[in-house]
Design a protein around this nucleic acid. Structure first.
Length: 437
RNA sequence: GCGGCCAUAGCUCAGUUGGUUAGAGCACCUGAUUGUGAUUCAGGGGGUCGCGGGUUCGAGUCCCGUUGGCCGCCCCA
């Protein structure tokens, strides 16, 4: 038993674990690239103020933060959004619009561990800057969907809930509420799914009971699950803001439908997302069975770049966490088992043969083949067994007889057939074998 | 931050009302086997029973504390 334990909530990646993680990262990266997103990265350690600027005590309590040797207050990054806003903000005027960027990075939050949540995790982040219209949401939600379907997940496995903080705001405004009350109601809406009527307790304490007529309308609005129902509800109210917003909704849903993604999307105004910086459309991806935490979440945050010192720049983004996502893939049997097998395994008679084999081993490795051999002299029988167990396709046999005749014996480990080739032709024979198979 | 359950070999787990030197399977290593395949047989390494304290003639077993894990609550950028 090791004396030194891994820090709580941190993960170690043994080769099989890392193979799975690499698989996930590789497909995410491939998908984002196909959508025309460019990859970036940034420091793991940031000034604490970058996160304090936009958030309260709760968030600070969950930061890994400390004072460095130069007396700076620093924190391990808990998310990518402030960082990417700074990167983009600093060069906003020099970057071609729209700015479509993604990253795959590690984040740290000092939280209690749970299923699908640790203190150290990876996220795929994708953001579009400089596009104020719902075209940006279309592109991002399409990317989100494909980041999941590329692993074999279907609409049976997950869905994306789509909502809109602006629409809520305009609607409550039209019902005659002022801004503090609107925020109070949105807080209740956020919790309504979980707590039912209890969710309004906080509002009542602060502002007194919500007018029964308004509350009924809020509850009805919250349960809206289609664009048609939305339009019907809002038709009576009219107003430029609401009419304009409905046009955005039609454009967004129409775009996603044209991309063939309608089956993944559910209008659900019950989603508000607690995070204060979201300003418009918000969306979250969940597994259909409802057993896991959210797979991904995102939305529009048009004010954040400016708040962090950059120019006014509209923005939309989302993130997928690797922990819940990997759990889902494993539950659905979509996480492949990775075997680490060489292409070629060398069977070597003894010291003298070993020297001859080394030259060929180096040649084949330089050609890009993965070649292994036993480090110590081992009886032939064991070596053949090792060759078979290694998963290699070919065994190369270097015995005294072969060396004497300047040949190498090649054994096809699948068919168990053997032949000898002149040592000089080994490289091309191996290449032909692998290019044919 | 709060609550429930749990902790014995690398893994999965036994371990009697508290009683000799803590076990099995799998995995790993060696040999049988000096040129041909997952078998078989024989052998081997590996444990301060999470850690610390207490009760006892005696603790893997009972009690307290602590650390860590799983699950839920809060939160979830």
């Amino acid at each position: 038993m090791a004396s030194f334990q891994t820090l709580p909530g941190f993960r170690e990646f043994y080769p099989e674990d890392l193979a799975r993680r690499n698989h996930v990262f590789r497909l995410w990266r491939q998908t984002a690239t196909a959508f025309g997103f460019a990859e970036y990265d940034a420091p793991v350690l940031e000034p604490l103020d970058l996160y304090k600027a936009k958030s309260g005590d709760e968030i600070e309590a969950q930061l890994f933060s400390f004072t460095d040797k130069g007396g700076r207050e620093v924190a391990l990054r808990p998310e990518m959004t402030p960082t990417v806003c700074r990167l983009v903000g600093a060069k906003a005027n020099a970057l071609k619009r729209p700015i479509k960027w993604f990253s795959i990075a590690e984040f740290y939050r000092y939280e209690r561990m749970q299923k699908g949540r640790g203190r150290c995790f990876n996220q795929f982040n994708a953001d579009i800057f400089g596009e104020a219209g719902p075209e940006a949401e279309i592109e991002l939600i399409a990317l989100l969907v494909q980041c999941l379907t590329t692993f074999g997940l279907t609409e049976q496995d997950f869905y994306v809930r789509l909502s809109d903080r602006n629409l809520w705001f305009y609607y409550l405004e039209a019902l005659g509420l002022d801004e503090p009350r609107i925020r109070g109601v949105l807080g209740a809406v956020d919790r309504y799914e979980k707590y039912g009527d209890e969710a309004f307790k906080g509002y009542t304490e602060q502002f007194g009971p919500l007018d029964a007529g308004i509350k009924a309308k809020v509850l009805a609005f919250l349960q809206i699950k289609s664009l048609a129902a939305l339009e019907a509800t809002l038709a009576a109210l009219g107003g430029d803001k609401l009419t304009g917003r409905l046009a955005d909704w039609r454009k967004l849903l129409g775009g996603l439908e044209a991309m063939g993604l309608a089956r993944f999307i559910e209008v659900d105004l019950g989603v508000v997302r607690g995070l204060a910086y979201y300003t418009g459309f918000v969306f979250e991806a969940f597994d259909r069975k409802g057993e896991l935490r959210a797979l991904a979440g995102g939305g529009r945050y048009d004010d954040l770049v400016q708040k962090l010192g950059g120019p006014a720049l509209p923005a939309v983004g989302f993130a997928i966490g690797d922990m819940t996502f990997s759990l889902l893939l494993e539950q659905r049997g979509l996480m492949p088992t990775f075997v680490s097998a060489p292409d070629v395994y060398c069977v070597i008679g003894g010291e003298a043969e070993r020297r001859a084999a080394f030259a060929d081993i180096q040649t084949l490795r330089a050609m890009g083949y993965r070649v292994d051999y036993p480090m110590k002299d081992v009886p032939f029988g064991k070596q053949f067994k090792a060759a078979a167990e290694s998963g290699a396709k070919l065994a190369l046999i270097y015995g005294a007889d072969e060396i004497a005749n300047s040949v190498v014996k090649i054994r096809d480990l699948a068919t168990r057939s053997e032949r000898e080739v002149p040592a000089a032709q080994l490289a091309e024979t191996v290449r032909d074998f692998f290019s044919a198979s």
